[in-house]
């Protein structure tokens, strides 16, 4: 099971977050509003892993995008290291941005197909002007991600799915982040590769004292990576708590439904879940 982490100070604090999208152009929904996230509050402490679990379209990725500074909240605050990231000036945002790094679900499209692995990681390192020893750093990062340094001259199309996601992880680590946002990091991977990646992410969390905000719809993998879990449905958290407690003793029907759905034995012949 996931090793427990002695929690220290709060790294990310989200209070009463609301995200509303307005459809601008797409006919026939033009002018309609979508309440993607409604009054969501949670915090992640240093070294802690917090997972948001829910069905596709429930608003999980909107929270991640907002925490990354890509989607402006309609209301509420997002504080990282006690600073409201949406009230910072450009200079402060540039200073803060390396500390929050994403690893996206679509591992293939996250890598520039025209760059070698070396260039992909070096490009991230260029954001850190004090780092003059790129070659050694790239090798170290690849080693941390469980990859042979010889891979750095390859292009993304020459890599397997698992290797591509490891490159994404290595790139995220390049800037020494404190928080890594993992958006479905293993959902596109096969079982064996997925488990290898989870093992790697757990190891990196311990080694670099990383915090994770994990977005997933798969409870069985979330369980292996998380200290805290929030269940999300239609933009709100329906249940939230320590991973073990929530999965062993769910108090909400929707959580039970998700747990039940992840068990595929006794498939119904009537087409009902």
């Amino acid at each position: 099971m996931q090793a427990g982490t002695t929690a220290s100070k709060t790294l990310l604090q989200i209070k009463d977050l609301r995200i509303v999208y307005k459809q601008k152009t797409t006919f026939p929904a033009a002018g309609q509003t979508v309440h993607a996230v409604n009054s969501v509050s949670f915090s992640i402490r240093q070294g802690e892993s917090f997972a948001i679990v829910g069905r596709s379209g429930c608003g999980k990725t909107s929270i991640a995008m907002s925490a990354l500074g890509f989607v402006k909240p309609s209301a509420g605050t997002i504080s990282f290291m006690e600073k409201n990231i949406w009230q910072l000036n450009r200079k402060d945002i540039r200073r803060l941005r390396p500390l929050i790094q994403p690893v996206f679900q679509d591992y293939g499209n996250s890598l520039n197909p025209r760059m070698t692995v070396n260039k992909i990681i070096t490009e991230a390192l260029r954001a850190k002007p004090d780092d003059q020893t790129h070659t050694d750093t790239v090798k170290q990062l690849l080693d941390s991600a469980g990859l042979d340094s010889g891979i750095r001259w390859r292009y993304p199309h020459q890599l397997s799915g698992g290797q591509k996601q490891r490159i994404n992880i290595a790139r995220a680590l390049a800037l020494h982040p404190k928080l890594v946002i993992l958006d479905e990091p293993v959902s596109s991977q096969d079982l064996s590769t997925g488990v290898q990646l989870i093992e790697l992410l757990n190891r990196l969390k311990q080694t670099y004292e990383l915090s994770y905000l994990l977005i997933s719809h798969n409870l069985s993998t979330v369980r292996l990576l998380s200290d805290q879990i929030a269940i999300m449905k239609n933009g709100v958290f329906t249940e939230q708590g320590p991973a073990e407690t929530l999965l062993q003793h769910p108090s909400d029907n929707y959580t039970r439904e998700l747990i039940e759905a992840s068990n595929l034995t006794n498939l119904s012949k009537t087409g009902q879940v």
């Binding site: 759905a261 595929l264 498939l267 009537t270």
Partner: peptide, 20 residues
């Protein structure tokens, strides 16, 4: 493979029913 757990179970149940 790209579906969430509830959609996945629904889909597999549906496939099972149509198969029968």
């Amino acid at each position: 493979s790209s579906l969430d757990s509830i959609s996945k179970k629904y889909y597999l149940n549906l496939l099972n029913r149509l198969k029968q």
